[in-house]
Design a binder for these strands. Structure first.
Lengths: 329, 329
DNA sequence: TATCCGAATTGGATCGTTCAAGACGGCGAG
DNA sequence: CTCGCCGTCTTGAACGATCCAATTCGGATA
């Protein structure tokens, strides 16, 4: 039965005081090289690991970051969060932080969860995925000076807090340009109802790319809630009314619906989705791909920047998506 | 600037000692009703929350459970883990535990991570998803008496440790019976190479169901690594050699491949996949559905059973899958 | 040789909680 | 009446780390 190894054990073994061991861990530069080496050897020999609870008690820092895991809603876009979380865990680990999961069914409950996590676990920071106009969660966190980053811009006040996002407009613009280069002119867009930051952004990219190429986008777009059936329905409508030869969609779900609607058209209508989900890869759907691992890494960067305490000013990161070309485009 | 509320603040406010407050929290029955009420009122009035770090220091329990999040490999089956994690977080929360994520690229590194998590964070337990024959991870954990549960049976020693699993054989058997009931006789199976516990189990269900119906399964099965292209390839092979009228697959990936191979057959060959992933729902693929939320809940049950300390004996839970019927069957 | 300086090290206090042991009043038994 | 016990509550110590102030020590300076 090996005895528990504490900082005192290490100190005894290296014939120094506890404080010296602590200094080796937290401020190595103030310890003489020779002493430091002796302490480090003792640490390795004994397999010492600093007890996080004890450290936290003194410092008030838990080295824990919270992220929310959602019930995969429509199921297709769920994998985006999945991949993001994986990247977050990996990068946070490298920075000496761990990721704690939580769930919540609505904003009030989510805020109650923040309160609990902060009170009992003294969480260091939160990562929120997706925010909406006038989000009460970010307001609550900001009010209390809790460090947090969002993956997704705060559309109503870009300077409100640090965020990382992917340039959706650039993605749909690139998709549209690709179709233009392939000779298409009647390129439609199926997106979400007006008023959602993300949806409007993606629509704008398509619109601007068309205008830049001298094509009038008027009438060539449709709006609906996300979903496969919805996408199929709107695509049929487009085919009947406007005879587009290609379509860019705000999500892979919509694009999958569109794919079903165009079955049998000749020449085949090109389709490009958004998010490059596994489903897209599975069925050969071209899609705009977000650099999720990179996004997660930058979230951690921003957080450690705030936590390890230099720049107080909120910082923003806008990443560029890429186009995953497959046989539907 | 509200002062930090500790157990001492509550004690002062309720005019009792710290220990009495502690007793109200941890052993309410030994405190007189009237006193207890006074303390509880004070707790609510002050918004007191027990500091987990301090508690952990004394008790050695962190109320933290670790689970691994994997890089979505082929992407399709990844959502299984995703849904499982969500259920785990929800149920753990209800039981007073939180879920901590970690990643690892191989077994050795994963074990090193265990060591680190146990040493610095004093994790209470681990949840492992999927184990293989002679898994070094479970051996390591068992050696050190670390509480853990696996989602997936330990195929080489069913009594080695607590586990929760879904009866794959029952799932493929049900799928096969459904096809038999629909009049099919030549029902094929596309699965994974012999020697994987999960794969062999799923194949056995198909085989037994056929035999029970008096159909000889000989020759009607193929084995390959998981993947869409692989499934398509083997399905073409089956069609050419054995002319099956239906096929049961060990995964949705394989089933998707099979779907592509049978396009245009008349009458259409029926296909049933496994895991009921979002992709299956999206393309209308019938599939065997695992009760993932339930599985997660039972994992937490087993863990709290061990942690909150009654039954020492490993326990096992085998859940029944259901059939998600869609137009491919 | 005496004095001083700064780098390196030391011991004690502290974070908020639970554990172990003891104090206090009231009650029933001897 | 006294003793012991039980239920209830209080006090002091401990968990393992960091922070703070005090001390030691080697070497440079006068």
């Amino acid at each position: 039965m090996p005895e528990k190894v504490t900082i005192a054990t290490v100190a005894r073994h290296a014939r120094v005081s506890r404080q010296t061991v602590s200094n080796v861990l937290n401020a190595p530069h103030i310890v003489r090289q020779e002493t430091r080496q002796r302490v480090e050897d003792a640490i390795n020999a004994l397999g010492y690991r600093a007890n996080q609870a004890a450290r936290q008690m003194r410092t008030g820092r838990s080295r824990l970051i919270a992220a929310r895991i959602e019930p995969t809603r429509d199921g297709i876009n769920g994998s985006v969060l999945d991949r993001f979380l994986h990247g977050l865990t990996e990068t946070a680990d490298a920075a000496g932080y761990r990721v704690l999961l939580y769930t919540a069914t609505d904003d009030d409950r989510e805020i109650a969860t923040y309160d609990d996590l902060l009170g009992t676990y003294e969480l260091d920071a939160f990562v929120l995925v997706g925010t909406k106009y006038g989000d009460p969660r970010t307001a609550w966190l900001a009010d209390r000076d809790v460090p947090f980053v969002t993956f997704g811009r705060p559309w109503d006040a870009l300077d409100a807090h640090p965020w990382v996002d992917v340039d959706g407009a650039a993605g749909t613009a690139a998709a549209t340009r690709h179709l233009l280069d392939a000779g298409h002119r009647r390129i439609a867009f199926i997106g979400w109802p007006l008023g959602s930051g993300v949806g409007d952004d993606r629509r704008a990219g398509w619109q601007d790319a068309l205008r830049a190429a001298g094509v009038d986008p008027a009438g060539l777009h449709r709006e609906t809630e996300d979903g496969i059936a919805e996408g199929e329905h709107l695509m049929r409508d487009l085919l009947a009314a406007d005879a587009p030869t290609a379509v860019v969609c705000a999500s892979d779900s919509l694009a999958l619906g569109a794919l079903q609607a165009i079955r049998g058209t000749d020449p085949p209508v090109s389709v490009i989705g958004f998010d490059d989900t596994p489903v897209a890869a599975a069925v050969g759907l071209a899609s705009v791909s977000q650099p999720l691992g990179e996004a997660a890494a930058r979230c951690v960067d921003l957080l450690t920047g705030v936590l390890d305490g230099h720049h107080e000013t909120p910082t923003h990161v806008l990443l560029q998506p890429s186009l995953a070309l497959r046989h539907t485009a």
